[in-house]
Nucleic acid binder design. Structure first.
Length: 236
DNA sequence: GCGACAG
DNA sequence: ATCTTGTCGC
């Protein structure tokens, strides 16, 4: 699929934050996503890499990505793509996309199937500057994109979350609604859902729940995670 | 200054 | 996230 070149990626934190604020103003909530046949999910993993001879201290870290497209009706696999790149950024909270998005987008670029909706492991709007990796990737893909994170980065949960699968509570920052805390499975920690791009929050919640019928994390995300882990172990 | 901090 | 064995529990 086609990838929009939004900007250069080799920026310092200050410039990156400016880019995030600018891009956040371009994120669209979009209309309710009533129908979706296919979902894509991406996962990224890092491989430390061996120290090069004669150069103490400097090693080449690799960032690996796997993207999978599934049919929502039966979770059958339609396509799998992988990519690897040298790390350009360390992990810095609030700047995850500058580390992981370039590799993920390279894997998305290889897709021949354009998914109806994309699931990203991380936040979208629920970000200090309202541009988490899900929004960043969504802007580059121009496809409805959902952020589904395993822990909180910004904001706070308003009220209490019920114990049943499907229970939800607002994720807010001040008076601003930035996401939803969603329990996808009873007796298990919830996930944090937020708008990535071109989708509304209610639809995002709906599709995350639909994609996670049995386990805490959506099936596409689980599969992408296994694939990238296997890829990393094979990678030299 | 202190605490928090996606993956 | 990653380094890592077994173990408790459904």
């Amino acid at each position: 699929m086609k990838i929009r070149q939004l900007h250069r990626w080799d920026l310092d934190c200050r410039a990156a934050a400016a880019v995030q604020r600018e891009l956040a103003s371009r994120v669209g909530e979009g209309p309710p996503l009533a129908r979706a046949e296919t979902v894509a999910a991406a996962d990224v993993s890092a491989r430390p890499g061996r120290a090069p001879p004669g150069r103490a201290g400097r090693r080449q870290e690799w960032i690996l990505a796997a993207v999978v497209v599934l049919r929502l009706a039966d979770f059958s696999v339609l396509e799998v793509r992988k990519a690897a790149r040298r790390a350009g950024w360390p992990y810095v909270p609030g700047f995850l996309s500058f580390r992981e998005a370039p590799v993920a987008l390279e894997a998305f670029r290889q897709l021949r199937t354009v998914p109806d909706v994309v699931l990203i492991d991380g936040h979208g709007r629920a970000h200090p500057r309202r541009l988490g990796i899900a929004s960043h990737i969504g802007l580059a893909l121009q496809v409805p994109t959902i952020g589904c994170a395993k822990s909180l980065l910004a904001g706070e949960v308003r009220g209490r979350l019920g114990p049943a699968r499907g229970s939800r509570a607002p994720l807010v920052e001040g008076s601003e609604r930035i996401g939803t805390v969603l329990r996808t499975r009873a007796g298990v920690r919830p996930v944090y859902v937020s708008v990535g791009h071109l989708i509304d929050l209610a639809s995002a919640e709906r599709w995350v729940l639909a994609a996670a019928p049995r386990f805490r994390l959506p099936e596409p995300a689980r599969l992408a995670h296994r694939l990238v882990t296997q890829f990393r172990r094979e990678f030299s």
